[in-house]
C-alpha cells in the first residue's frame, strides 16, 4: 500500500539515524523520536500493510498494544504536524530481537468510527491486548476472532478508561458506617 516508498535498507540502520528537522519516514510511515525511542505514525489504512512490512523486517513480536483517550488533552506532543489528531490513539510496541530494536506505532482513531484492523493474523499475541483495548476504550478491531469484554463483566455498561467515563469514586464515609460495623469493638 503506502510502503512502496520504504527504503529497503532502512531496517539495518534505523537506530543510528541522526535526527533531522525534515519529516522523516521509516517503512513508509512518518517517524518521530521520543526520548531516544522511535515512533511511527501510520494512518489507519497504512497499518495492516505496515505490520506486514515490519514482520518481514524482523519485528517478530508485538510486545504491547494499548489505547489512549486524548479527550481532555487534544494538543498532544510528539505527533508530526501533517498527522491529523483524533480522540483515540492505539499504541503498538514492537520488538526486533535480532537487532535489539524497538518501534512504537501511534495510530489515530476517530471517536465516531472507532475501529482498526486486527493484528491477530500476523501477531496472534495481540488477541488479549486488543480485547482489553476494546473493553476499556470501545475501539473495535476488524478481523479479531473473539472480540468480547475481557476484564469487565459481560453486562457492564461503558468503557471505563475513556476520559468521559466516571472513575466511580465514592466519597469515603467517616461517620455513619453500616450497621454491620460497630464504631469500636
Amino acid at each position: 500500500m503506502a510502503d512502496d516508498t520504504a527504503p529497503t535498507g532502512a531496517d539495518d540502520a534505523e537506530v543510528e539515524v541522526t535526527p533531522e528537522v525534515a519529516p522523516e519516514e521509516l517503512f513508509g510511515a512518518l517517524l518521530t523520536r521520543s526520548g531516544g525511542q522511535l515512533v511511527l505514525h501510520p494512518t489507519r489504512e497504512q497499518y495492516p500493510a505496515l505490520l506486514r512490512t515490519l514482520h518481514e523486517a524482523g519485528y517478530h513480536s508485538v510486545i504491547d498494544l494499548c489505547g489512549v483517550d486524548y479527550l481532555t488533552h487534544p494538543g498532544r506532543s510528539g505527533v508530526p504536524a501533517s498527522v491529523a489528531t483524533e480522540r483515540f490513539e492505539v499504541v503498538v510496541n514492537l520488538i526486533n530481537h535480532k537487532e535489539r530494536g524497538r518501534l512504537r506505532l501511534r495510530i489515530q482513531i476517530p471517536v465516531d468510527d472507532a475501529r482498526l484492523a486486527s493484528a491477530f493474523d500476523l501477531y496472534p499475541g495481540t488477541e488479549a491486548m486488543e480485547r482489553e483495548t476494546f473493553d476499556m476504550f470501545g475501539i473495535s478491531f476488524d478481523g479479531h476472532p473473539d472480540l468480547t469484554r475481557i476484564l469487565m463483566p459481560e453486562d457492564w455498561l461503558g468503557h471505563p478508561l475513556r476520559k468521559d467515563y466516571d472513575s466511580g469514586r465514592i466519597p469515603v464515609q467517616f461517620k455513619g458506617a453500616p450497621a454491620n460495623r460497630p464504631a469500636s469493638r
Partner: peptide, 8 residues
C-alpha cells in the same frame, strides 16, 4: 514535562 515514554 509533556510527552510519552515506554520503558521495560
Amino acid at each position: 514535562p509533556e510527552g510519552e515514554a515506554y520503558v521495560s
